[in-house]
């Protein structure tokens, strides 16, 4: 009984312990402010990596546009919070911001999924890349505001005229500012746990089996009666929705989103892909660990300045070897078996 719980929820417990450790250290004043400021981003990148792994590892479709879905979640969540800043209490507003951000990201995931999921392999990757860039570029150029006359939307600064009492939501390249800072490490960890819960349970259900069957062999899946389009759309939409949740955390952490191309360009999507590949394609927990380590590493090595990207590269190569090299995999397997026999023997003697 204890063993099955450990196997199933062990990783959740590790995350909770990590949260506890960081919170205690933080309260004791033992974390530098720089390190504390890295904790929230670490959670939303871990969440986004899980979202991407659902798409790449479980559904088997390579997407390089997931930063775009994060971007949509970030903007729609932030705009909702700005609009309801005066009306709703903080906690409820933040919760609803998640609902809005997730809903918008899911909607875009669904709409983009319709054309994109007809493509395969490289083509799909290229088109998702394009959609990610389009989303980012449009949001960087758009002006959006509300005043007594209604909603104003424009792509041109000169035609964007607001009443003095109006509320500007997106101000072109200056983006969204004044989003309340609701994100915290605790909220981030809760959303991460919920995400893991959702993805693990999805994988271990009839829908998850259907999705993975399509990944492994589309023709056989169809012949077995699986509605391929439906399950591809389901997985892609859920993946986009989770990325949207990560975006809501993002916008309510940075509060001012200017220069968003630094955060949501294709480099960001590729970085998420690096987390997924190094954590193990299809290995959800691995994505979380890889995202956390690889996000923290270059940040923590800022002191090393010139060498930090070199070290980062070496760590990438090492993680690649540990996860994917057949020789190392074999040794890991043997070590595991060896430890297992040792432990059971020790258990019997005790």
């Amino acid at each position: 009984m204890l063993k099955t719980i450990g196997k199933k929820y062990g990783f959740y417990i590790v995350i909770v312990l990590f949260w506890l450790l960081m919170t205690l250290l933080g309260n004791a004043g033992m974390l530098t402010s720089h390190f504390s400021s890295l904790l929230v981003p670490m959670t939303y990148y871990a969440i986004a990596a899980v979202a991407l792994n659902l798409c790449v590892g479980i559904l088997g479709e390579l997407s390089i546009g997931h930063a775009g879905f994060m971007c949509i979640g970030a903007f729609s969540g932030a705009i909702f919070s700005l609009l309801t800043k005066e009306v709703l209490p903080g906690g409820l507003r933040f919760f609803l911001a998640f609902v809005v951000g997730i809903a918008f990201a899911a909607l875009f995931g669904f709409l983009i999924g319709i054309p994109v999921l007809r493509l395969k392999g490289d083509y799909l990757a290229i088109v998702t890349l394009a959609f990610g860039e389009i989303i980012k570029n449009v949001l960087q150029a758009v002006y959006l505001g509300v005043d007594a006359q209604g909603v104003h939307l424009s792509l041109d600064m000169t035609t964007f005229r607001m009443e003095p009492d109006g509320l500007t939501l997106i101000k072109g390249a200056q983006g969204v500012s004044g989003t309340p800072r609701n994100s915290s490490f605790t909220v981030g960890i809760i959303v991460l746990l919920l995400t893991l819960f959702l993805v693990h349970h999805l994988m271990d259900s009839r829908d998850g089996r259907a999705i993975m069957a399509i990944r492994d062999n589309r023709i056989a899946a169809e012949a077995t009666g699986i509605h391929v389009t439906r399950y591809k759309m389901l997985a892609f939409t859920i993946s986009a929705a989770i990325a949207g949740a990560a975006g809501v955390l993002f916008s309510h952490n940075v509060t001012t989103m200017t220069n968003i191309s630094n955060y949501f360009n294709y480099n960001a999507s590729i970085m998420l892909l690096v987390y997924v590949v190094l954590g193990g394609i299809g290995n959800i927990n691995g994505s979380v660990i890889a995202a956390m380590i690889l996000y923290l590493l270059p940040e923590l090595m800022r002191g090393l300045n010139r060498y930090r990207m070199l070290i980062y590269a070496i760590v990438l190569i090492l993680m690649m070897l540990v996860n994917w090299a057949p020789g190392v995999q074999e040794r890991r397997r043997r070590l595991k078996a060896f430890l297992k026999t040792r432990l059971t023997r020790a258990g019997k003697e005790a």
Binding site: H201, R206, R209, A220, T224, G225, L234
Partner: peptide, 29 residues
Amino acid sequence: RLFQGLSVIDNVKVGLHESFPYGTLAGVL
């Protein structure tokens, strides 16, 4: 054409997909 990344029993379970049609929400929750 098997589902190579799935376990032996999960391959058969995919075949049972239509016979036991509980919903996505029921599966996740």
